[in-house]
């Protein structure tokens, strides 16, 4: 027919097509490298024997791990970070499960409002919330008792993660299970405990893992609430990176990557990666 619509001879176009597909895969590989590069570099650098940051390391040792684990400020930061993240996660799960139950069960007047209210921390800039909380604490002169305030603030920022995850798993649950339980004589409370919570367990676990991770990693809110008494590991890390260009942040970072990896694998095992795909 009218082959003049083709600019190039057929074999050339076919070849370009193949090259294009190859290029596409190469580009995809390059961006994958971009995503993993900073993590891999940090891990490699943490085993350096040098006393300053350089790549590739001149030699390998565990010096910086020994150094990091012996520092008291790191140990106290890790401890308080763990306490804060654990408490915040537990509280956020309880509050979040109740709210998710409301959102997932059946439509009611004002459900949209409830949804926007409980998820609103996601829409406001963290630095604004952080400063706003700090401002109020100073106003009511409670800026000296740090741990409870820190925990409450962390419950607030992790709550949306719990709600989204639990809500998704509850919304997918079969309502006839509840009806079956009630027809077998279970009270609403028994139904909630034995049926609703059981079937939403993967969602609750996934939400708890995400909440713990984001609480443990938070910088934006915590940096406003940090005091001489209570500080968190990421906040300490920020100031350490700023003032000490040695490889000790790499060692801390590697430990954090290892913990996150464990949580990530657990999350993937319970099917929680789908939580990222919904929305």
């Amino acid at each position: 027919m009218n082959s003049d619509r083709f600019l190039l001879p057929a074999p050339v176009e076919a070849l370009l097509w193949k090259l294009g597909r190859l290029l596409f895969h190469v580009v995809g590989l390059a961006w994958q490298l971009f995503m993993v590069a900073p993590l891999i570099i940090v891990v490699v650098v943490s085993f350096t024997s040098a006393s300053y940051l350089m790549f590739p390391p001149p030699g390998y040792s565990l010096d910086w791990y020994r150094e990091v684990l012996s520092l008291s400020w790191i140990r106290s930061a890790v401890t308080s970070s763990l306490i804060i993240a654990t408490c915040a996660t537990l509280i956020a799960v309880v509050i979040g499960v109740l709210a998710s139950r409301v959102l997932a069960k059946r439509p009611f007047r004002g459900r949209g409002l409830v949804e926007y209210l409980v998820l609103s921390p996601l829409f406001l800039p963290g630095v604004v919330i952080g400063f706003a909380i700090f401002n109020v604490l100073v106003m009511i002169q409670m800026d000296r008792v740090a741990m409870p305030q820190m925990i409450i603030a962390h419950v607030m920022i992790t709550l949306p993660f719990v709600i989204r995850s639990v809500w998704a798993s509850m919304a997918g649950a079969d309502i006839s299970l509840e009806e079956a339980a009630q027809s077998l004589g279970a009270t609403p409370a028994q139904t909630f405990w034995h049926v609703v919570l059981k079937s939403a367990r993967p969602g609750i676990l996934a939400g708890a893992i995400l909440a713990f991770t984001f609480s443990f990693n938070d910088v934006t809110i915590s940096i406003f609430l940090t005091s001489s008494r209570v500080t968190t590991l990421p906040v300490q890390l920020v100031s350490h990176i700023e003032y000490n260009p040695d490889p000790s942040p790499a060692a801390i970072s590697t430990l954090m990557i290892a913990i996150t990896l464990a949580l990530f694998v657990f999350l993937a095992r319970i099917g929680g990666l789908n939580a990222f795909l919904e929305r």
């Binding site: 995503m35 993993v36 590069a37 900073p38 993590l39 570099i41 940090v42 650098v45 940051l53 790549f55 995400l210 991770t213 443990f216 990693n217 910088v219 990421p234 890390l237 920020v238 990176i241 942040p249 790499a250 970072s253 954090m256 990557i257 996150t260 990896l261 949580l263 990530f264 999350l267 990222f276």
Partner: peptide, 17 residues
């Protein structure tokens, strides 16, 4: 996976690079 890793760690990685 990087989405779950601390922002500070990720940024530090880029500082090193």
């Amino acid at each position: 996976f990087p989405l779950m890793v601390s922002v500070v760690v990720r940024t530090f990685g880029w500082v090193v690079i």
